[in-house]
Design a protein around this nucleic acid. Sequence first.
DNA 1: ATGGTCGGATGCCGA
Length: 259
Amino acid sequence: MKIATFNINGIKARAEALVDWLRVAEPDVVCLQEIKSVDEGFPHEIFDGLGYTIATHGQKGFNGVALLSRLGLEDVVRGLPGDDTDEQARWIEATVVGDRAVRICGLYLPNGNPAPGPKYDYKLGWMARMRAHAAGLLRSEAPVVLAGDYNVIPQDEDAAKPEAWREDALALPESRAAFRRILNLGYTDALRARIQGPGQYTFWDYQAGAWARNNGIRIDHLLLSPQAADLLRDVQIDKETRGGDKPSDHVPVWIDLDA
DNA sequence: ATGGTCGGATGCCGA
């Protein structure tokens, strides 16, 4: 089961690039972030003929997540559990059944800038809530995948210029600690485990020629429960999409599970 | 038209 995460930065602007990538990469499941669309405005028709079942959790203007699956979607949950007053569309999860049933969560973690401030407080609160939910998911003892744009640079080696991010919400010690607290529940960072060496990034800013200079950061992550980690066959970053026409500032990242 | 660059939605905000 090939499972990808891709922050597409606007579904309407990215329709062509996204479909082009789907035809080549042929993922079974895709977690999309920043669809920037309400559910009613999501262009289902661009996926016609590709065989995907689609579930969206959108909002007007910003944020918004979606799941695509060639293997169906069961028991869809929209919104990160634990706070009914949170109106930001940043979480969607469902069960996908291949050879095995996998619980797949697509997430768009808050950016948190400027820090300190209310946006950073929201980020840390959201991460604590995600940790609680991630702990609950482990109790199923089933394969679980937490895939998305975490807006966290886990370590200095995950940035081309770590000094430029020292005061940023993506790299502050509290952000990194909150990310580690989720890992320490027993999740495996799939890219960290399988892709070695520096310069392995998933995001390059549109500004200042960041892509041309490989001035990137690694912030799109797939975390695996122990039962999912046991099934891991492959991990890849499809960085060539960043050099295409009208690219997102993120690229797709995917895993292949024996499931 | 909106800083640098985008996208979506307005008469800038979020990233």
